[in-house]
Nucleic acid binder design. Structure first.
Lengths: 338, 338
DNA sequence: GTGAAAGCGCTAACAT
DNA sequence: ATGTTAGCGCTTTCAC
């Protein structure tokens, strides 16, 4: 009896309860036109059989619902949760759901996660630059290969296979930060950058220094992992390699907080001896001492753009063939460290 | 022509391409037994029509897939992202997906989010205690009312309507923390607690002090919002209200870091003047200066238990009627603040 | 108050 | 290489 091996369905419940499948639906969904007695009996049977409605079947009959996959390299950088939070809330305004996928370090696991994710979502929002996430996607999910699902990249390399992207305009932001520093009498400005990414922040930094006749050598720049530990190490190198520096612009807030930590440990006073400006504008920056001045990314805007781009593609409103994009600016949030 | 108003389906593509629906499936899913020419043509038509496969229909025919909803009061407390990360990874090992829902402050929005979430997931994992999340659930989603979906509570009040829960054993952890403090010569131990929650941490704290003949008055305890700002304020009160205190146990790490900040601002040296122990064991604790000693919650274990409990219920393995639960212990992570 | 029939959009199995 | 037939599990008509 029952679809042996397979899951319990509404028909199993109906059979055991001795009613038709609609009566089961009525009982279970609180619909009218059913006697209290029958309802109770059906519910009892459903409980007993451990019946679970099949979401896919319900979804099919109820109509389309959009689910987007939010892919993060590593949720432990607080930037991503802040973004995830914004995305979850904005998506919910469109009655969309967000499936979260934290890829982690293991490439093969990451690949498997992406593979399964692409089967469950209507679009993918990628972010984070540490690994070449796009490269881990199954071929058939990607633009060009057959259909594929829409892929939106947030602040990452706008690889070919991406259907739309949001870039962050570091150029103007970096200038604002450097303006702030020079206006406060800082002129020997170092930079701590990521060692993995070809960062446009660095380009803007060099350009600015050059334009304003501020000192720059290759020794003004330090590079390390874009982690807390990377920030600690880069700051340690900076203390020895560029002891005269009176300011430093840092790749992200997590590194900047690492730098803050190392400066504190080494007796270098922030901001008296050296001003520190991070990038990201994490809430976390307000928790540390001294509070971190930072070039803030507008996560809500980023999330809004992401949803908008996905919507345009899914609805067919996007100009066919061309890759849409958005640009999001930075705001300098001045706190204590600079 | 085409199902006017409705979405483009595979039949629309088939009709326009002048082939059968099966051929469309073959073309789009990279199946064999189709000529390259037909495939290209079909893909072209699908692109042109902006065809998107209906995930529900695919899911229905491919078989059951489990999705769980992870509900968080406020993702901005770093504890939740750490937990979300663990949950996402463990769920992926079961080939389950996790839909993230960040409820936020607005009660009505939160209610609406939960309502829509319950239609999309096979089980709900709730966490966070700030609001009575269970109370916001639609009636028909809840245990007792008809069927409802399984609801698992993590470290929250195990209300009636919850089907299973994971509790955290603060009792033993608090004792370990206090042992550590007394072993290091601290005897005037204060506590900063949440003002909202009836915390078992506090009970254990009082009990321990009493047992060990350590001084306690009502003025040993301070309560505030379980936020960074709450920690700042509570520490400020502590400085005036219990100036002799040589140690303080704090409700969570975010508050503890607030306290650290206030102590630094007020020239109170940690750990020399006062030792600080937080609760949660956030990665964040290692980023601040001094690094935070903390009673660490094992988020991976928590997530594992959650998945296990959900699995037991969905599979019918759970003892009918009785609410299963798990208990997770704490580990004292000694860093610099105590 | 209850049941029978139809169909959501897709893929797998069996034709041809 | 392509088309035809079934059926996934559910809800929504419509009949009784």
């Amino acid at each position: 009896m029952a679809n042996s091996g397979s899951q319990i369905t509404i028909l199993d419940v109906a059979r055991v309860a001795g009613v038709s499948r609609q009566t089961v639906t009525r009982a279970l969904n609180g619909l009218p036109d059913i006697s209290a007695a029958t309802r109770e009996r059906v519910i009892g049977v459903a409980r007993q059989l451990n019946y679970r409605p099949n979401r896919a079947a319900q979804g099919l009959v109820r109509g389309r619902d959009v689910t987007i996959g939010f892919v993060v390299d590593d949720l432990s950088n607080p930037f991503y949760p802040e973004l995830a939070s914004a995305l979850s809330r904005i998506a919910s305004e469109h009655a969309w759901s967000v499936i979260l996928s934290d890829l982690g370090d293991d490439q093969e696991k990451a690949r498997a996660r992406l593979e399964s994710l692409t089967h469950r979502v209507d679009a993918l929002v990628l972010t984070g630059c540490r690994t070449d996430t796009v490269g881990l996607l199954p071929d058939d999910a990607v633009r060009g290969r057959a259909l594929g699902i829409p892929i939106i990249m947030l602040d990452g390399s706008a690889a070919d296979r991406v259907d739309a992207f949001v870039e962050i305009d570091y150029q103007a932001g970096v200038r604002a930060a450097l303006d702030h520093l020079t206006a406060n009498g800082r002129h020997r400005i170092a930079m701590i950058d990521s060692s993995h990414i070809a960062s446009s922040r660095r380009h803007a930094y060099r350009e600015y220094l050059h334009e304003h006749d501020l000192p720059w050598t290759e020794g003004s720049e330090f590079r390390d992992d874009e982690t807390h530990q990377g920030g600690v190490q880069a700051a340690a190198e900076l203390i020895h390699g560029y002891p005269d520096a009176d300011a430093v612009l840092v790749y992200n807030d997590v590194m900047a907080i690492g730098a803050l930590k190392e400066f504190a440990r080494s007796g270098v006073s922030v901001p008296d001896d050296i001003a520190v400006i991070g990038t990201d504008g994490l809430a976390l920056g307000a928790l540390v001492t001294p509070e971190l001045t930072s070039l803030s990314i507008d996560k809500v805007e980023l999330a809004q753009y992401a949803v908008e781009l996905v919507d345009n593609i899914l609805s067919g409103r996007a100009p066919g063939g061309t890759r849409e994009s958005r640009s999001s600016g930075l705001t300098l949030v001045v706190r204590e460290s600079a």
